[in-house]
Write a protein that binds this DNA or RNA. Structure first.
Lengths: 337, 337
DNA sequence: ATGAAAGCGCTAACAC
DNA sequence: GTGTTAGCGCTTTCAT
């Protein structure tokens, strides 16, 4: 294992001091052109790659952002990974990946954040989840710049990117209420991109405005596991009157509901209309194709990274909680929308 | 922003030298119990977190493994991320995430590896892809321990985890050939977990053994984009005789084919049998449910990390290319399997 | 415009 | 057992 070439080697090769080499690689413009060229050439000749670790120690910055993922989210966020990855690369930040598991028992968010702190990441990206509050407390305590995806929050050290979940719920419910339909079922499934509690609030609000109430028994909470969800829905349909409209927290569960309807001979969209969320491949695969709330996933990831870097560079931040625009993509599972 | 507490602070607080503190946090067993306790207490009192960056500089190790992902893979590997994440955590390695895009043009693997080298990761995990050879050349050149997922390779500095794609192709084809069916179509789609070229080889081999040849026009290459694939298949069915068996490189494409059949009134599995790969949620969502080749995704991720750490610690490695067992999960899209 | 030297926070010889 | 000290590879004053 041949030793890595260091800044000293380059300095010697170019016959300058290491300070000058440092200046060149950091783009300082005080270096004379001739000298700079000589250094650049030496760098090339020796295939020198500055050691980020040493640089990190010297500057007390790691140019690293930690991304903490609920493991389950991967299936639905490939585009977001794209946004995060591309932006990190563009801004020259490394991304360290931390996973938390579904239930958060064996590897709670708090432990993960401890790790992040030890790693000296400059900032961290968190996803909306049950235990995010505890996480935010910790990042505040460590003064760790934080971006939250999927939930509106802000603080001294935290920014967020989210979609207006309340409006989604409100608009959807109001649309049907206006048409005299109040027979709505809300399928709550674990979801880290849309704050389902707010969405629930929105539905309730629309009902109140219409002089009605959205009862708690119009909410069904289910598993993220397809067959399990499918089962739950089949049971539901067996034991309840078929609702007229289903608002599902995530496309996958919407598809499960569609299939349960299919099994029971409930026709979509004539007997029942259903709306999914996220607008993932599941929405397109479904038969009938799913009407779904589209989220600007890629951009949300990109914005999250950008916000963190702004906090790090103490750039002006006009909005610490950025609301991204969602759109409802109408397909074949609705007709009165 | 209050300054982080360092090993010096702890040393002072505990009234020992920093060397002793270092010994304590590194679990050296030469420290007297009383001293150790005093140090431990000071660490707790000051909430000291050793700086991994400084440690990395001092040891010339980053205890970091870089994971390079084709961005597209995320949707299908959440379990693998689980395996990688859990194992990394257990072994106390950080994981740095690098994404490459679909086409590899704007962010070629080579550039990513340059970044990895700069970051001083101890090792790197790569996925099977078109341009992996160039990547391996580079990691060899930099003497960077590498684990490849999804393709059999090995070298001085590289290990791999893979499934026997050739056997998958061979077994599947042979099964039908033995039953007198040679009307097989192979759907090739981009896939980073199974080496589709080897799979193709396997099919060919079974044909040769049966005294036949598997013609090149029995292979259809398609997009990873669902609607596009669906379209391609619809066109195919319109312009060709309907095959008896379809082997699809990935479940999503298999589902697209199923729907194309559905549109044309081709009955599955009576008229046409179809087999998917990976055994993802798509296989279960499909109607009829898809027979699919199941991969031990989580374990593949875990093994990849473990192999790298073995290389790093110069542990004995009995097998540098580990073949994982796949299984065929029979569901409703086949009947003669 | 360039060099010398003092850190950044930690590990690991080497002393005692 | 514990302390002293020399690095690890780089950035950044401060001189020159």
């Amino acid at each position: 294992m041949k030793k890595k070439t260091t800044i000293y080697d380059v300095a010697e090769e170019a016959d300058v001091s290491l300070a000058t080499v440092s200046r060149v690689i950091n783009g300082s413009n005080v270096v004379k052109k001739a000298t700079r060229d000589r250094v650049l050439e030496a760098i090339k000749r020796l295939d020198f790659k500055p050691n980020q670790v040493a640089r990190g120690l010297a500057t007390s910055k790691s140019t690293t952002i930690a991304v903490v993922f609920p493991q389950s989210i991967f299936a639905r966020v490939k585009d977001m990974i794209g946004g995060i990855g591309d932006t990190g690369r563009t801004l020259d930040y490394s991304l360290t990946m931390y996973t938390t598991d579904e239930l958060g028992d064996s590897n709670p968010l708090e432990d993960v954040i401890e790790r992040v702190v030890k790693s000296r990441a400059d900032g961290v990206i968190l996803f909306n989840s049950q235990d995010i509050e505890k996480g935010l407390e910790l990042t505040k305590q460590y003064n760790l710049p934080t971006a939250v995806i999927g939930q509106k929050t802000s603080d001294d050290n935290v920014c967020s990117v989210y979609v207006d979940a309340k409006a989604i719920g409100y608009d959807l419910a109001k649309n049907y209420l206006d048409k005299g339909i109040d027979d709505i079922l809300f399928v709550k499934a674990r979801q880290n991109l849309i704050d389902l509690n707010s969405l629930h609030e929105g539905i309730k609000e629309a009902f109140v405005e219409a002089g009605k109430t959205f009862e708690d028994d119009r909410v069904i909470t289910t598993s993220n596991e397809f067959e399990q969800a499918h089962n739950d829905f089949a049971n539901y349909l067996d034991s309840h009157q078929t609702p007229r409209v289903v608002i599902a927290g995530y496309d996958k569960e919407a598809v499960a509901f569609v299939q349960a309807c299919d099994d029971k001979g409930v026709h979509i969209p004539d007997d029942l209309e259903i709306i999914g969320m996220v607008d993932s491949t599941y929405a397109i695969i479904s038969r009938p194709k799913l009407t779904s709330v589209h989220l600007p996933i890629y951009d949300m990831g990109a914005v999250a990274v950008r916000m963190i870097t702004k906090m790090l560079n103490e750039e002006e931040i006009d909005e610490r909680a950025v609301c991204m625009k969602h759109t409802v993509v109408k397909r074949d599972s609705t007709k009165l929308l």
